[in-house]
């Protein structure tokens, strides 16, 4: 047991090192793009305001009427902030595939070595899973830290007259994207992550199916993913489908969802264990 844990930590550390370049690149892009956003977006706004005032010899009130006041939310809702988040999300979707396929494709077939390590093969599976999550959380933290840095920058650039004094929390809560990323509402945050974890488990299982049965495995994997997803999402749409909105109470729905998530997770883990131990091919 102790040995397994040791192996898990060792291998996770190894996988983290392999992730680091990719992660640092995403973190760097996030920071730089955000920084540009914190400076460029308010500067552009101030530029427009000043131009309006100069051209129309208007007062600042008239300018506000024309362009509206500026809050930190305006800075957040820009390409410079949303862009890197979208990049991060697609980056980690890509990485969830890449973390497996890089062992087979590429210059050297590292899969041989990994599958021949004298450790339980599920250790590889758990490590890869944890590493994807660590990567995602690291990137989310980066985004959070960046907001703290950006907040004073934006307020410094925007003149008081035009600035809507909004707390950082208020600005963040206004933006739907952050509701999904940040632990603003603990229950919701946990749900999102539980769903994320199950989706990743299903994806890993589908990948192992493809690695075990080739073309047949792709079909199998897609079917498995669709069935699993349907199972998990069905209760959410059940009221609409049955045209009966009173069929389930909110609390019942949550319990049913939780049970379904656990079922799909356990099923995926058992399937994956069987595949990686008995069916996988180098």
């Amino acid at each position: 047991m102790k040995k397994s844990l040791h192996n898990f930590l060792k291998f996770t550390n190894f996988e983290l090192e392999r992730l680091s370049k990719f992660l640092f690149a995403l973190m760097g892009i996030t920071f730089i793009a955000n920084l540009v956003g914190y400076i460029y977006t308010p500067m552009k706004y101030m530029g427009k305001i000043n131009e309006y005032i100069a051209q129309n010899s208007a007062t600042s009130e008239q300018a506000i009427q024309q362009y509206g006041p500026f809050s930190f939310y305006n800075a957040l809702n820009s390409f410079w902030i949303v862009g890197p988040i979208a990049l991060g999300i697609s980056g980690f979707i890509f990485y969830s595939f890449f973390i497996w396929y890089r062992e087979w494709f590429g210059k050297n077939t590292f899969a041989y070595r990994l599958l021949m390590l004298p450790i339980h093969r599920m250790t590889l599976f758990y490590s890869k899973l944890v590493v994807v999550f660590i990567g995602i959380f690291t990137l989310i933290s980066t985004q959070m830290i960046s907001l703290f840095i950006g907040y004073p920058i934006v307020s410094a650039i925007i003149e008081n007259t035009y600035y809507v004094n909004q707390s950082l929390m208020e600005a963040v809560q206004l933006h739907p994207l952050f509701l999904y990323l940040f632990p603003l509402d603990l229950g919701f945050f946990l749900t999102i992550n539980a769903v994320g974890l199950v989706v990743l488990l299903v994806l890993f299982t589908a990948i192992l199916m493809e690695r075990s049965y080739a073309v047949k495995g792709i079909v199998l994997g897609i079917i498995y993913a669709v069935v699993a997803l349907t199972l998990v999402l069905l209760p959410l749409f059940l009221p609409d489908l049955l045209n009966n909105h009173y069929i389930l109470y909110g609390s019942e729905l949550i319990i049913i969802e939780a049970i379904l998530l656990v079922i799909v997770a356990v099923l995926s883990l058992f399937t994956s264990r069987h595949l990686i131990n008995k069916k996988i091919t180098v």
């Binding site: 210059k107 050297n108 590292f110 041989y112 070595r113 021949m116 390590l117 004298p118 180098v282």
Partner: peptide
């Protein structure tokens, strides 16, 4: 089983360490 990889070694004809 996994611990038998300490008893049997395999040298394939493809490179298997990371480049």
């Amino acid at each position: 089983r996994p611990d038998l990889y300490n008893k049997v070694a395999f040298i394939p004809d493809v490179a298997i360490m990371l480049p």
